[in-house]
Nucleic acid binder design. Structure first.
Lengths: 344, 344
DNA sequence: TTGTACGCGTTATCAC
DNA sequence: GTGATAACGCGTACAA
């Protein structure tokens, strides 16, 4: 067997080939100022010829930087986070960084393990969107920050922690969504709220409440339903709602899956959308366009969110933290579709 | 500012604390056989006290292993690959490996860059699902293999390359899907085929053809339509099909997005599903359950596929390559739903 | 069973 | 400008 395991070329090989010292090679490659242009070019040429690539481990060992960013997201299967990751990849790979992706599966314990794993892997910084129980790991976040590893929160943040955050104005967008429903002539609006522990739940609920109040709509305990965040949650609560005899004419859901689950049930019970009941989701998903009628939803600039978060962590790492304010709020948009347009 | 940057503890710290040599510590930690149990326990205890964690870069530098697996998939936003990744994560993290995820965006050039990046990052192995133009990078795959880095293909493989592959029997499942349509009484079946360059396209088309032939259905050039792989492709081709005057009573689509796009158009044109026309997709997606009527589709064991591919690459890395045959074929299933059940 | 010494590939601190 | 040389944290052949 011809074991073609050609050893990777090192700066030593280059040095030997050129009859110079490794320090010279190192300087040339790092484009140091204290180097003659001719030798630099010579080195570069030799490096290319030998197909030289620096060994990141060796560099990391001496510089104590891995050029790796750790990422922890609740899940990957809903296209929401992948879209954010796309933006991150772009910004980070451009800067020569690599991403280590982990998923917490909405479990703060798994998140904890992931963060420890990332720390052990000596990532230079951490990007995180927390589980719904972020407060449970607040101490860990602080510990990591204290140990010198910067953290940037995005989408789902931990409000207690003093670290950069990249978000949208959930309250404002929720308000806008509900205002849209009201202006369309829907009056009895019910909010299917998300998991109790999630900051986003409170923020979106606030938006709902403030819009209802602004337009003088009555709000009582039946106006907000604790729901969850998955399709089944929406379907289940909608069924309860219908069976309870309540007759809301619009649902503002915590997110798209909940809205879609609720729509499914509504249709099953013979309600026509949006004639009998309107729906608005949040965090536009691909499904919003597949479901019928198409679902009105708040679209977030996901790729941009990833990019901004990435740049933010890079700035932190490189000590230019002042560039960003503590919290970056991105612009979102309400995409109005058939599910919430009153037919006159 | 109290820079709490506590330096990470090293084996030296442990050695000093215990008054032994670093090699003893090293041996104890790697659970070598040439070590007294008492000292081993002492070391372990001290390590725990000092919150010691080995520095992966230092280990990598000396062992020439990064304990990192490179992954390259076409995209992440369709939940298909994330589900596979879930299985990989499980198997790999269990074995102490970490995944470096890259996406090729269906571009063989990006794939090329990704692979080179992974090589530079000294991954111990590469898991890849190719772009639709895999043959364009065949030489690179071979080069990487030749350089000693094992590769395992999954889902979308490059048939020319002699490396382990983890797949399902696409032809068989396609045959099964079409047979199902025929047994439901649909006769004029059209296959919306995928991208020409993709192996999967050919395999699924073969299944379609063999089933049609087996049941004596006529097949001509209008029976197979070059389509693509996205929703828009399905929608567009369906519109062409309808306007052409052709009246198929069933569509077997290359994948779910194509099927869903086609369904959308069919409904727009007033066709009722499955009365006027039936649909079957492939590679079951969440959308298959959201669309109405629910879409019949071939479900792949995604998580398992990831797990098997991961174990396979680990075996390759650890020299136990003989455990697996060159190609592992996993069992898939046809999930029959409303979109293809004849109403009598 | 344990300690010594070297090397992995690179940067950094010195001299020259 | 350039070249030795010492780290960085760890594994390991060799010696004890």
């Amino acid at each position: 067997m011809p074991e073609t395991t050609k050893k990777h070329a090192t700066i030593k090989d280059i040095a030997k080939k050129l009859g110079v010292s490794t320090s010279t090679v190192s300087r040339a490659l790092s484009d140091s100022w204290e180097i003659k242009k001719e030798t630099r070019d010579l080195v570069l040429k030799a490096a290319a010829e030998l197909n030289y690539h620096p060994n990141p481990m060796a560099i990391g060992l001496v510089t104590k930087k891995s050029h790796t960013i750790g990422l922890c997201v609740p899940e990957l299967v809903h296209s929401f986070f992948p879209k954010i990751i796309t933006g991150m990849q772009r910004a980070l790979s451009e800067a020569g960084y690599t991403i280590l992706i982990t998923t917490s599966d909405e479990s703060y314990e798994t998140e904890r393990k992931n963060l420890l794993l990332l720390k052990q892997n000596l990532v230079d910084g951490i990007l995180i969107s927390t589980t719904s129980e972020s407060h449970r790991n607040a101490a860990l976040y602080d510990e990591i920050l204290g140990s010198g590893t910067p953290i940037v929160f995005f989408n789902r943040v931990c409000s207690k922690i003093n670290a950069p955050k990249v978000i949208i104005d959930d309250t404002k967008m929720a308000h806008m969504a509900v205002e849209h429903l009201i202006r369309q002539g829907y009056g009895k609006i019910v909010h299917m709220a998300g998991p109790r522990d999630l900051d986003l739940t409170k923020l979106r609920m606030e938006g709902f409440l403030s819009a209802m109040k602004e337009f003088g709509r009555t709000v009582d305990e039946s106006s907000v339903i604790d729901t969850g965040m998955f399709i089944d949650d929406g379907a289940r609560e909608m069924e309860k709602l219908i069976r309870s005899g309540a007759k809301p004419d619009a649902i503002f859901a915590f997110n798209d899956p909940v809205a879609i689950g609720a729509m499914k049930t509504a249709k099953k019970f013979g309600l026509e959308i949006p004639r009998d009941i309107a729906f608005v989701g949040f965090s536009e998903s691909k499904s919003a366009l597949i479901v019928e009628p198409a679902l009105t939803s708040v679209a977030q600039p996901l790729s941009q969110m990833g990019e901004v978060a990435a740049k933010c962590i890079l700035d932190k790492i490189n000590g230019r933290a002042e560039t960003y304010p503590a919290t970056v709020v991105l612009e979102a948009a309400l995409n109005v579709r058939e599910s919430s347009v009153r037919i006159r």
